[in-house]
Amino acid sequence: MSVIKVENLHKKFGRLEVLKGVNLEVQQREVIVLLGSSGSGKTTLLRCLNRLEEPNAGRIEVLGKVVTHEKTNLNQIRQKMTMVFQLFHLFPHLTALQNLTLGPLVVQRKSREEAERIGMELLTKVGLADKRDAFPPKLSGGQQQRVGIARALAMQPEIMLFDEPTSALDPEFTREVLDVMKKLAREGMTMLVATHEMGFAREVASRVLFLADGVIMEEGTPEEIFKNAQTERCRTFLSKIL
């Protein structure tokens, strides 16, 4: 079953056209890895999906709802398709647990008991149950990003978007974050991940997309892309990062 459908998506920043007609269909339980040099539009594509960025043209459908319609209730879709940010963007005035419970309490109107039960379950899942009362600035980068993932999970989404989740981390913390993401992938979460982590792509990606010149230039299984890329651009890119 397809959960995301993107047709002819265009996005311009001023006169710079970052996306020039992207077409994409994502099936349930797929783990999509977006590759491409910086400025290739990976982040922009993800941010257009939940309309943190306003597309200039094209049609986006998520879980049967047309995101690009004016009348669509975006807040409903965003609960079901949450996002993990490169710079975490945790709420610094709230504890780790409160970061997780805010959405369920305020947006989904869950009871405090239930929100905290879900919150603690997720903190345990990302290995941070003992940090429930810690404020984000007191946590390491890796811990902050794991809270970020747990916060996105707390809405009990069907799809998760990861915008370069390990790019801002010291290398020593990358693994703990990737491990959590791999666990999610294996549990069947539908994920779209912009990343440069090839190991992650090899291990869990169902499909790898290579973005260049504002379009998806090449796509395939990790095997196909890493061993047998068809375009020169993709081969050059891979040779630089592998």
Partner: peptide, 15 residues
Amino acid sequence: GQVEAARSIGMTTTQ
């Protein structure tokens, strides 16, 4: 980023 993080989990502008 604080606004975006809040909006990304479905919070309204007022929330």
